[in-house]
Simulated scan of single mutants.
Amino acid sequence: MKVIKEKHSLAMRWAHWINFPLLGIMIWSGLLIYWANDEYEVMIFGHRFIKFFPEWFYNLLHIPHRLSEGMAFHFLFMWFFTLNGIFYVLYTLISGEWRELWPQKHSFKEAWLVLLHDLHLRKTAPPQGKYNAAQRIAYSAIIVMGAGSVWTGLAIYKPVQLNWLTWLMGGYHLARIWHFALTLGYVMFFVIHVIQVIIAGWNNFRSVISGFEVINEPPKPTAHDEEKS
């Protein structure tokens, strides 16, 4: 018997869908800023393996020579990004939903089993509640990453006024590296998140929009069934 049950609250869905475009704007405007001094690359024994980013990448997205535009968007929308993050964290703490999100004692071991199940290398998935072990780790990590982006971003934005924060982040240059690495982490998270949504199916995606999911429950025994037993 199919039953409709509430899965995600309005506050959770609001924070989730607001954060998606905000993060997109932050990454896009951050690239506009980074283009002004794109110094990061991976070199081993003098050989360049990766350059962040090649010329064609900037030309494809029409990024070159838009530093002031990038700074204007980045410094404006960072406040909305920060406020949305604070709202979400406060909501999870006050509502008690953090218990469903925070990794448990065996979450890292179970996350490996979830991965094997998703890759069809294991028949059964470990038992889960509202979120499985892999989701708990990923969703908790993204909160920590968001806080890290704000702290390192402020350290870069106001290195003189917030010199104590810049010092805590390891100095201006290290704070910039952390900020850049976190941006790459967001992109990786987004790709993995979309794959997880596809694997989970339409019912799970619909619940993040409407807040409800359709589940199959065994029919409740009737008085006639009890008499038979």
Rank of each mutant, 00 (worst) to 15 (best):
F49A: 03
P21E: 09
V42D: 15
P54L: 10
I25R: 02
P54A: 02
I50K: 02
Y40A: 07
G24M: 14
N37E: 14
L76E: 15
S29E: 07
D38T: 05
L67N: 05
M26R: 02
Y40S: 06
P54V: 06
E69K: 11
A15Q: 14
M71V: 15
R13M: 05
G70N: 07
Y40W: 12
N59V: 05
I25T: 04
F77Q: 09
L60Y: 05
H47P: 01
N59M: 08
N59D: 15
G46V: 13
A36K: 07
L10I: 14
I33R: 00
I18V: 14
H16L: 13
G46C: 07
M71G: 05
W56V: 11
I18N: 03
F52Y: 00
L61V: 04
M71F: 07
W28F: 13
I27A: 06
H47I: 15
L60S: 12
L31N: 01
L22N: 05
I33C: 03
P54K: 07
L32K: 04
I33T: 02
H74Y: 08
A36Y: 11
W79Y: 14
S68Q: 04
A72Q: 03
W35F: 06
G70I: 05
R48Q: 09
G46S: 13
P21A: 04
W35H: 13
I27Q: 03
N37Y: 11
A36I: 01
R48N: 10
W28R: 01
W35I: 10
M78S: 07
W79E: 13
G70Y: 02
F73M: 06
L23Y: 00
F45N: 09
R48W: 07
W17R: 00
S29Y: 01
I50C: 04
R48L: 04
E39G: 15
R13T: 10
F20I: 14
M78V: 15
F77I: 14
H65W: 12
P64C: 05
H65G: 02
I27Y: 03
F73N: 00
A36H: 10
W28C: 02
E41V: 09
I33L: 06
G24E: 11
W14A: 04
F73K: 00
H74Q: 06
A15R: 12
H47K: 09
L31C: 04
Y34H: 09
I33G: 01
K51T: 14
F73C: 01
K51I: 15
L31H: 10
M78C: 08
W79V: 08
W14H: 03
L31M: 14
F75T: 11
Y58Q: 05
R48V: 10
P54C: 02
I33V: 13
F53G: 01
L60E: 08
P64E: 12
L23S: 12
L60R: 11
L22K: 02
L10A: 04
M26F: 06
W79C: 11
I63F: 10
G30S: 11
R48S: 04
M43T: 09
K51N: 10
F75C: 07
Y34W: 06
F57W: 13
H47M: 15
I44N: 09
N59R: 12
L31W: 12
I50P: 02
F49L: 13
H62S: 03
I25F: 14
F20W: 00
P21Y: 06
Y40E: 01
H47T: 10
E41H: 12
G30R: 09
V42Q: 07
W14L: 11
Y34I: 00
D38Y: 01
E39A: 15
L61N: 09
R66M: 12
F75M: 12
F49P: 03
A72V: 14
